[in-house]
Amino acid sequence: MKINNNMKQYLVLFVFLIINLPSAVAQEVEMGDVMRSEGKIYVVVAVAFIALAILSFYMIRIDRKVSKLEKELNK
């Protein structure tokens, strides 16, 4: 019967929609997935790490210099 066939189609469509609903909602929010999949995010991490490493190195250096001065002043 023709009506039955139509209903079947709608049912399939409905089930398809229900199954895909969560992923459709999740993909609505745009994130930096391309950058992540290309691995370019590691470039950002590398640059940030280098900046932080230089800052840490400098902090340690200042701390050492202050300690050295303290020792000299306390003599």
């Binding site: 929010v29 745009e30 950002v44 932080l52 840490s56």
Partner: peptide
Amino acid sequence: LFYTYYEGFLGEVPRMPILN
């Protein structure tokens, strides 16, 4: 701080509209 920078860029975060 190094842990923060590593996980801060690469860790999993929830997908939120506007915030992204």
